[in-house]
Nucleic acid binder design. Structure first.
Lengths: 131, 131
DNA sequence: ACGCTAAATCGCCATATAGGAATATGCAAG
DNA sequence: CTTGCATATTCCTATATGGCGATTTAGCGT
């Protein structure tokens, strides 16, 4: 259950270094691609990203997430189900409420990378206008 | 109205994060979330992942990508347009052919992270079956 | 000009999914 | 058991998107 992090494939340290390291082009199976695509799809929705972003501040119950999300309770419930099935969040019943938390640490890395890219692209576009 | 009564910051972090990787929970704007979601959506498709996976081996023209993708030329063309609009690949005309290449190095990181997670989950599920 | 090839685009269909209202379920208090 | 709150689920509609065939566009050689 608990794993003293043996640095899964060295991904942690490579995070902040956008060097042009081309890894050996290992071909992935079709089945693997389907699974990977499913994970990306779970992140391909603004409301779900808002939920994850809120959960980055710590555990929240569903009502709190509904308030933070700007959409209805039914939608949030469905989006949470998607995130849970993708293994990204954990949900536990606590009396009347359901408490949610991020269960997949790679969510942080993925969002961090995307944000960095977004910043870089925006900046590049701004430079293109000025220069 | 209500505040998160139990864990302020520590509980779930102890569960899933080693030590260092907790970024300050910066709230992202709705506009940023839409842009980030769009980038994830570009990766949320097996055929597009196959194209990227192929391009990880170096530049390829569209015909080569069609052969590697297992789907039709029209589809590949549309998928390539999606990846280009997401800023992940570059395309240049070279005589009759169009040569494609990965233009966003974060693609490597993102796929690497997803593959690691996939391996970890699959392994955990296998352990759960064996006991 | 023509034909040929590579790639992009269009039209259509089928499916997936986000959104929302209504309803059902689970749980605790009285 | 009944009431009330917090979530989940169901049903529905609108939209987005993938796949495919057919057509169009683009560039090279003749």
């Amino acid at each position: 259950m608990k794993h003293p992090p043996p640095s899964p494939a060295g991904t942690f340290l490579n995070l902040c270094m956008p060097s042009k390291t081309a890894p050996p082009p290992k071909a992935l199976s079709d089945a693997a691609l389907v699974l990977i695509a499913a994970r990306f799809r779970a992140l391909a929705e603004p409301v779900r990203l808002r939920l994850l972003n809120t959960l980055m501040g710590g555990e929240r119950n569903v009502t709190q997430l509904v308030e933070a999300s700007g959409t209805g309770q039914a939608n949030v419930s469905k989006h949470l189900a998607v995130l849970r099935e993708a293994g990204m969040i954990a949900m536990r019943r606590e009396g009347l409420t359901t408490v949610c938390s991020i269960s997949d640490p790679s969510v942080y890395q993925l969002c961090e990378i995307m944000c960095s890219r977004l910043r870089a692209d925006t900046e590049a576009r701004a430079r293109a206008l000025d220069g």
